[in-house]
């Protein structure tokens, strides 16, 4: 009896060990490159076959910020991101209203068209965008790069806000009308507060998309509109691995901040669904 129990116990322990091993492997698989770059960005005199850098330093960060002109690049990135967020959320609100609340003929087809920029390989799409932007002289302008980003941000905004508007309870809007609110008051006092979670989600999605967008930026940027991903990529060409690593680590920071904000402020899954079922 005790033997059987001990045997079972051992099996149980083995299962735990196995589970943890797998989990750890998965974590390592995902985190190893990041860890690698992270170590590289603070290591000094790290040559040969050493497992860990012999000396730690923050010099590379200073270099990255000064040589890579990071403040300027960060400014570009944020301005372009800001424009992209504003435009795609505005598009998302109107399109989302239409998709979520109206009986549109051919709704599925329209939605497919909206999602098309995400389905076409970015390089294919970006080449076309670049061609048009050169003609319109939109290349190397904040607006131009931001508009290119909108093509990938807007589909997310539309998707999220369509779902939000669909979740709006028609009866609640009717109730506001019966209570005496006209269309404008209904929108500001009832609709807007109720879709706020959706708008926030759409803004976060749009911003992270714009912030991380590489291919489209590469095809539309110029000396005045270098963004963080492009700057990092250019630094790779310069051959300074340490500085590039520092830049790459710097890029991660805003993403982490946003993640922390989402985690603390709201449940992401709740943001998407709006107030369905309340």
């Amino acid at each position: 009896m005790t033997l059987a129990r001990a045997y079972l116990r051992a099996m149980w322990d083995a299962k735990l060990v196995l589970a943890f091993t797998l989990l750890l492997s998965l974590t390592m698989f995902i985190l190893a490159p990041l860890l690698m770059i992270g170590l590289r960005s603070v290591g000094k005199g790290w040559f040969g076959r050493l497992w860990l850098p012999p000396q730690l330093t923050l010099d590379w960060y200073r270099w990255a910020i000064e040589v890579g002109n990071i403040p300027e690049v960060m400014k570009n990135t944020l301005i372009i991101g800001g424009i992209a967020v504003a435009v795609s959320t505005a598009i998302g609100i109107f399109a989302g209203w239409a998709f979520g609340r109206r009986q549109l003929p051919g709704k599925e087809v329209l939605m497919a068209i909206v999602l098309l920029p995400r389905m076409i390989p970015p390089i294919t799409y970006g080449l076309g965008v670049a061609k048009i932007f050169y003609t319109l002289q939109l290349v190397d302008t904040y607006l131009g790069v931001a508009m290119a980003h909108v093509s990938v941000c807007a589909p997310y905004a539309i998707l999220v806000l369509s779902a939000t508007f669909e979740g709006l309870d028609e009866r609640v809007l009717e109730a506001a009308g019966v209570c005496g609110a006209n269309t404008i008051k209904r929108f500001f006092y009832v609709v807007l507060p109720l879709i706020m979670p959706g708008i926030l989600a759409s803004m976060i999605f749009s911003f992270t998309n714009s912030y991380n967008e590489f291919t489209l930026t590469l095809l539309t940027y110029g000396p005045h509109t270098v963004t963080l991903p492009v700057r990092t990529y250019l630094a790779v060409g310069d051959g300074y691995w340490e500085i590039t690593s520092a830049m790459a680590m710097l890029m991660v920071v805003p993403s982490l901040v946003i993640l922390a904000l989402i985690q603390r402020r709201a449940k992401p899954e709740k943001l998407v669904g709006g107030f369905k079922g309340v």
Binding site: E174, A176, V178
Partner: peptide, 13 residues
């Protein structure tokens, strides 16, 4: 008018 709804239709926010 004043109206009472089947699903209450209160303003959740």
């Amino acid at each position: 008018l004043g109206m009472v709804f089947q699903n209450f239709a209160l303003f959740p926010h």
